[in-house]
Each structure stands twice: as C-alpha cells, then as structure tokens.
Design a protein around this nucleic acid. Structure first.
Length: 684
DNA sequence: GTTAGGG
DNA sequence: CCCTAAC
C-alpha cells in the first residue's frame, strides 16, 4: 500500500480554503457566487492536527484515562509489531519526524503531541497482536481490521459529552477540545475490535433523542454507492481492446448504495450485506467541493437499491421526469443554483502498482452535526451556568481513497485493500475540523461561546469533519480543498462550492473507475432484458465524479409545517434541479452498444434504444443517446483530424453512417409526407 | 412521456 | 448536456 504524503501545496490548501472557480457555470449565474468568499480563510487559521493531537495527548495523559492512555503504556512493545501494521515502520518514523517538525514549528504544540499519534498508529498492531486468533480471523475475513461497536462509540461520545462540561463551556471550552474529543472517538472506534468498519460510517447517535425521521446524510458524503462492475461478455463486432468494463452507476451518483440504511432509523452495528456497497472505492477525489442535493436527504432516496431503481426507472423514469419537470418549472432557480454546482472529476490513480491506495482527500470523513426534528447539533440545556452541549454526529465518512487493484484480485482482497487504506489514513493522522456556518473554525483557542457555537442560531450551522492530517501527505500535489461540508449550511450562505473544472477530460485510464460501458450489449441485443440485478455485493468501483464531487447545496426550506421533519438545510436553493449533470463521455463500449441498438431499432426510437442497451446505465437518458448519436453521425462525417476526445474506431463510425443512412431512408419511406417524387412511392 | 432539433 | 417545441 502506498501511503502518499501530501505536498506542501496541499497543506496550503488545507489551510487556505481557497475557492476554485467554478467551471461550467452559466454566465447568467455567474456573479452570484460572491458567497463563496466565505470559504476564504486565513491560512493562519489553519488548524493543525497537532493542536488536536496535543490536546488529546494532554488530556489523556494528564487524566490518565481513556484507552489511549493505556495503550501508551505498551508503546515500546508495540513498536515491535510494526510489521503487522499496514503503515510501515519507516512511515511511522517519517510521520514521527513530521510531527516533530510540526511540533517545533508550532508553539502551541508540545512534544506530547507525538505520543498520541504514535499510539494511534500502533494501537492497531497492539490490538491485533494481543489476540492472534482474533487477528487471523480478522485477516481471513479481510474486513474486520478496524471497527468498533456503536456502543463503544457511544461510550466515547459520552466521554466527549462529559468533557463539555458546564464549566468548560462556560469558562471556555475550546473548540479544539471538542475536535480532539471527536477525533478521539473516531480513532478509538477504529482501533477497537469490531465486525466491520462501517460502524464508523454509520451515524452515531450520541444522544438519546429519537432519530430524526429523515436522515441527515446530507453532508454530501453519501456512502459509497453500490456500483457494479461487470465485464462485458462480448462485444460482437467491437474492436479488441474495447473497454470491457461496465460500471453501472447511479444516474446521479447521488443515489447511495442500495445498502444505505436509514441510519437514523436503525442502529445496526453490523451490516454485512452492505459491505460491498459501502466499500466501493472511488477514484475519488474528484472534486474538491461538493454539494448535497437536499432532496437526496430523504432516506428513501438514500436507499436506492439496484432493484428499486430499475422499477422506478421503468415506471416512467421518475428521475428524468422529475428532473425535467422541475427544471422547467424552476428554471430561474436553476440558473441560480448552478453556480453551486459541480464537481470535477477526479484525479486518477498514479502508478500501476497493484493495490495502491492513497488517501488523498482532504475532506476525509465528514461528520455532521445532526439536528433531527428539533434536534440540533448541539443542544444546550442551560440551567443557569450549566450549559451542556450535546451533539450528535450522524455519520463518519472515511476520506476518499484512490485504489488500484488488479482485476484478478478477489473481492476480499479489495475490501482488505480498502480497509488498509482507511486504516493508514486514520492511523497516519486524522484531525477533526469544526465548521460553523460553513466555515471552519480554525482557532482552537476560541471558546464555543466565542465561536458562536451553542447559540440557538447555530443549530443548523455546525458541522464536523474528519480530515486526513495534512502534515502527512506532503507529496500529495492535489490538495483538495479541505473543506468538508456539513449538511448544515447557514441559510445566509448560499454555499457555493464550486468544483474545479478539471473534469472529465482527464481521468484517462479506464480503470475500474472509468465510465462504464454498458455491458450487456450482447445480451441486450439478443433481446434479453438482462436483469439489472447485479449483486450489490459485487466489487465496488470507484466513481469518477460521484456524490462526492457534488457541491454542497443547502436544502431548501422544508415545508413550514413539515419543518419538524427535516429542517436540515434551509436554503432557497432547489437542489436537485440546479445541477447540471456531469459530463460523462461515452466510452467506446457504450458507443458500440449504441450503434448496435440503433442498427437494430433505428433512429427515432430512443426510448427503446435506451431500454435495450442502456437500461442499466442510469445516467444515460434516451435523450443522451439521441444526442450521442447525433454527435456520432457528425463525427463520422468529419475528418479524423477534427475529431476530439476518445477516438472512436472507424469501424464504428462507418456503421453509424450506414445505420443513419439506412434508417433515414426507412423513415423517408414510411412517411413521405411530402412525396417528393412519384418515384419515391413506387419504391414502397 | 417521447421525439426532434437547436443551443 | 440543456432546453423547448411539438406530439
């Protein structure tokens, strides 16, 4: 596994929070993005992971409490177990060095900061070593390296809550402390022995309040989806080398995997069936900014299983329908929304090594402070001077990962790889960011009160994020903005996270993450309506631009009367419609499928073409297909030198022209509305 | 909801 | 890809 370090530039970005220019923003919408200024933050405010670590270390050591404290006692012995850990010893040392440097550079940090980190890194070994049996089992299962039970998390959270004692709040609990506590929870969770690492991904309901009716997974950090990767059985006339992988992706990438569980509704600690879906590795990193479509907050949307999807699609493709209808209906709004759009596509894996995993995203996991009905991220129960702040974090999401793994690898190994990546990230440095009103609160010395946290207005404005420690990936060039979102965005801040437009064009390789080519062309062609039930547990694939790449969009104000249900994001923005779909160039395989279908069905029957060849490609609408055909015809009629993008085999283009000519003729024959010549009719 | 075609 | 008109 490769543990990439971030480059200094990234670090800068981590702290700088600069706003990238949004790519495809309609001119009409430009100029409305002043809001993005809110993102601009002083580099000096960058919160150093050390602050957190130092805080954690200090607290734990001083108080002599917590698992970390205990673990520290065995640190020496743990050192010998370094080989077990997936973070190489050298890396640990390297990390140590970085930490030291950091410590040196940061007055506010002291040497103790190193300890926590070290302990974190090694605790994994420790835990695993202590129980050989458990260890082997874990390895066998390849997916149980890290985890913790909800109960454990809950306990930890309880501890956090305790830390936020009345006095501390009153006298000035530091936001840094809060972050440290959160980090502790997260870290602890990852080092405990539990069934699956998804626990961390699960929402953690810290308080006792009943879960909100609506999931607040609006952080924009949707669980990985359950894309499927299938291998094209055969591409009839397709040229060799044609991408044979098809990845079915949800239309909008926003549908979460079918495994999405209404987190708020159920607190399952173990969700084996979802593993595959959730473990989907994304190519990631896509965008630096994301937006969340409010509408997707609803749990029904979240649980969009493949099975569920298909029917809905057939039933009128509500999807499109809704889209279109709303679009026209809210055209104006849409334009406005657009400026908040977009995602970029990701970076690509570098290197061809197998099982390379890189944690590169800055907005690692993101927590969200959740406010259910009336639940707010923080609840202040103030009795005179006693102001307890209760907070609920709906979910943790691991940082985005870049994974490269040979197709021959087993699903199990993929899981393991991903898990290792996650472990490395967490072990290598994790920090928690606190966001208030969409802005990171970098000044750890501020009290909650000073930061405005705890006031009634903050309910919807507080969020947390788990981020990789910038200091750990110095070599990483791409410094994704490390802005994480929380679903709660201040209403006054139209949040505009625009994704850099480096989209599509360059995600070159067709690795797993690459666009999917429709698979079952052959099958479709044969008229079989390939069932779209692909095991959700299939290998997950990275997505290019996926959920993550979406910018965050505040949820429109809920119905006043329904306010009790989900007042998560209030915003005037119409989410769903506002976004321009990301550009997804057709792969050769898709073109092949399209050509095949058109040859058979002819032009003018796009819906049928869609159903026949792209039924599983949720993101391809019949309009898209029609448009693609249009461009194909055009492409075929121009010189190769004038063509752009992924070259389409001439053979296919020839077929396009042939099919176009044939069907045009057929059409002419069938409806010679304007009977040109008598001769024409004679033909029919 | 689909098609067709311009943008 | 989006948007509309037309059906």
């Amino acid at each position: 596994m490769v543990f990439q370090k971030r480059s200094s530039s990234e670090m800068e970005s981590c702290g700088g929070g600069q706003v990238a220019e949004m790519p495809r923003v309609p001119k009409s919408a430009r100029g409305k993005r002043s809001v993005r200024k809110k993102e601009a933050q002083s580099p000096g405010q960058m919160m150093c992971a050390f602050d957190l670590l130092a805080t954690v270390a200090g607290k734990l050591l001083d108080e002599g409490e917590g698992s970390l404290g205990n673990m520290s006692a065995g640190a020496p012995a743990l050192a010998a177990c370094a080989k077990d850990i997936h973070v190489k010893q050298e890396q640990c040392d390297e990390a140590m060095k970085h930490f030291k440097h950091e410590v040196t550079d940061q007055d506010s940090c002291n040497e103790s900061a190193i300890l926590p980190h070290t302990v974190f890194s090694r605790s994994v070994n420790h835990a695993r070593n202590e129980d050989p049996k458990a260890k082997s089992e874990a390895l066998d299962k390849e997916s149980s390296m890290i985890s913790c039970t909800k109960a454990e998390l809950g306990c930890n959270f309880g501890a956090i809550a305790d830390r936020w004692s009345p006095e501390s709040v009153e006298s000035g609990a530091f936001t840094g402390d809060a972050a440290a506590s959160l980090m502790q929870v997260a870290t602890a969770g990852f080092h405990k022995n539990a069934p699956d690492m998804y626990n961390l991904l699960d929402p953690m309901d810290v308080d006792v309040k009943p879960p909100p009716l609506v999931s607040s997974d609006s952080t924009g950090e949707m669980p990985l989806y359950g894309d499927k990767i299938r291998r094209s059985i055969s591409l009839p006339r397709g040229p060799k080398g044609v991408a044979g992988y098809a990845v079915d992706r949800d239309d909008d990438d926003d549908k979460s995997s079918g495994c999405t569980h209404p987190s708020t509704t159920t607190n399952r600690d173990f969700r084996p069936n979802c593993t595959a879906d959730h473990s989907r590795v994304r190519k990631l990193l896509t965008s630096k900014y994301r937006k969340v479509a409010p509408a997707r907050i609803h749990k029904s949307d979240l649980s969009y299983s493949d099975v569920e999807r298909k029917p809905s699609f057939r039933n009128k493709k509500m999807h499109y329908t809704r889209q279109r209808t709303q679009r026209s209906t809210f055209k104006r709004r849409k334009l406005f929304d657009r400026h908040a759009v977009l995602a970029s596509e990701f970076g690509r894996a570098n290197g061809k090594g197998n099982s390379k995993v890189t944690g590169r995203d800055s907005h690692a996991a993101s927590l969200e402070a959740n406010k259910g009905t009336n639940s707010m991220p923080f609840q202040k129960s103030c009795a005179s001077n006693d102001c307890h702040v209760k907070l609920r974090i709906k979910s943790f999401k691991v940082p985005e990962l870049l994974v490269e793994i040979p197709e021959s690898a087993t699903v199990g190994s993929l899981k393991k790889t991903v898990l290792e990546a996650v472990t490395a990230i967490l072990g290598g440095g994790l920090r928690v960011g606190v966001l208030h009103h969409g802005k990171k609160v970098r000044d750890d010395s501020k009290t909650l009160m000073q930061a405005g946290i705890g006031q009634n207005d903050m309910l919807d404005n507080l969020g947390f994020s788990l981020e990789p420690n910038c200091t750990h990936n110095p070599s990483q060039v791409q410094a994704p903005e490390d802005i994480s979102f929380l679903e709660t965005i201040d209403t006054t801040e139209p949040l505009a996270r625009i994704a850099p437009a480096d989209s599509s064009s360059k995600h070159g390789e067709v690795d797993v993450s690459q666009e999917l080519a429709l698979t079952p062309l052959a099958m479709n062609y044969q008229g079989s309506d390939h069932d779209s039930v692909h095991s959700p547990g299939g290998v997950s694939s990275p997505d290019k631009v996926s959920t993550n790449s979406r910018a965050l969009v505040p949820v429109p104000p809920a119905d006043p009367n329904a306010g009790a249900v989900v007042p998560v994001n209030k915003s005037k923005r119409s989410p769903e419609q506002g976004q321009r779909r990301i550009r997804r160039p057709f792969s050769v395989a898709e073109v092949e499928a399209l050509v095949l279908a058109v040859e058979k069905l002819g032009t003018g029957r796009w819906r049928d073409v869609k159903l026949r060849a792209f039924d599983n490609a949720k993101h391809r609408t019949y309009v898209d297909l029609k448009d693609k055909w249009k461009t194909l015809v055009h492409t075929a009629s121009i010189s190769p030198q004038q063509r752009r993008g992924e070259p389409v085999p001439q053979e296919l283009l020839d077929r396009v022209l042939a099919a176009q000519a044939y069907w045009s003729q057929q059409q002419a024959k069938l409806q010679p509305k304007t009977p040109p010549l008598a001769e024409a009719r004679l033909f029919t």
